[in-house]
Computed example of a mutant assay.
Amino acid sequence: MVSVPTVDLRTWRTDGSPAVVDRALRTAGFLLVSGHGIAPDLRAAVRAQARVFFRLPEEDKRPYAVEVGGRGWLGPGAEANGYAEGTETPPDLKESLSFAAEGPGEDPSVGSEWFAPNTWPAEVPSLRPLVTAYLARMRRLSDGILELLGVALGEGETFFTRHTTRPTWGFNINWYPDLRTAGSPRPGQFRIGPHTDFGTVTVLDRQQGRGGLQLFTDEDGWQNAPYDPDALTVNIGDLMAFWTGGRWRSGRHRVLPPPVDEPAEELMSLVYFYECNPGTDVLGIDSHRYLREKLDAIRVR
């Protein structure tokens, strides 16, 4: 089992957690966080309503279809995360509902790309208020995590959050259907192929399963990710690794294909990608140009 510490966000300023965080992010790039304040009932309600959408006939979902980076439904075969590493893998065995930051941007050209309106499925009207409530909590939580990371890096609580006054974010509800729905995996095919996330910090509410999350470290290779139903999983992405000058590593991970001996296993993850303000210079890297290039890279054409 990969060593991934659990940090209580209510007490990290007094219990020595910053040093623990620094060590973990230098090896696996992952943490578990407790004391996050996101109610289990809200997480369960988002999943329940999203499941209503995913179980609709394909012809009802098709009007919401978008490509990677869009706001709407990413259907089967739309995405292959292994492409980000330059690996020609089969498409990922998943479907997603994708949402992102809304509202006018300070620069109209930035606003049209990164702050466009979301698409909400008319067939599931109760999904919108639930997701909106969840996202408001995620924004506050993510800034709190960035404060912890700033201290862990030895730079102070506002080192990262001074760049999140007008941040972009993405939110994917990933549905990993059972084997009977997805079909038998092809060689080298995963629910999500091996990759590192591209941005700043990812906050993941996941379910445990045989076809679940695995982490990679140089010391241990691929190992099952530790799981705590009361904790959220946090990993840093490429931009955060760049920001630290390579001190911390972007957490490499994958989601295993549906298990052959448990053909009915179905999982759903709530994945929040929190980014900095558009135009932020990360040690010479244009943050959002990098994000766009990576999103374009994993699109199946």
Score class of each variant (00 low, 15 high):
M240Y: 02
G170P: 04
V260G: 04
I38S: 05
D286F: 00
T200I: 14
A44W: 04
Y290P: 00
A122R: 14
V282M: 03
V2N: 12
P257H: 05
D60W: 07
R210F: 00
R62V: 11
G37Q: 02
G156F: 04
A100E: 05
G221T: 09
G86Y: 01
D107I: 08
V7C: 03
R166S: 14
R180K: 12
S17V: 12
S109Q: 15
R180I: 05
M1T: 15
Y176V: 10
P278E: 07
T280Y: 01
D178S: 10
G69W: 13
Q214T: 11
W73S: 14
V234I: 15
K61M: 11
A45D: 08
E262C: 07
D143R: 14
S34K: 05
T132K: 09
A100D: 09
S3K: 10
L283C: 05
T161R: 09
A116R: 15
I285L: 06
P91F: 08
Q189I: 00
F160H: 00
S269I: 05
T202G: 05
R43T: 15
A84V: 13
P5F: 09
L32H: 12
R191L: 06
E265P: 09
V282F: 03
Q223K: 06
I38D: 10
P258N: 04
S269K: 01
G199V: 12
T89D: 02
R139E: 15
L135Y: 08
L146E: 01
V20P: 08
E58I: 10
G221E: 03
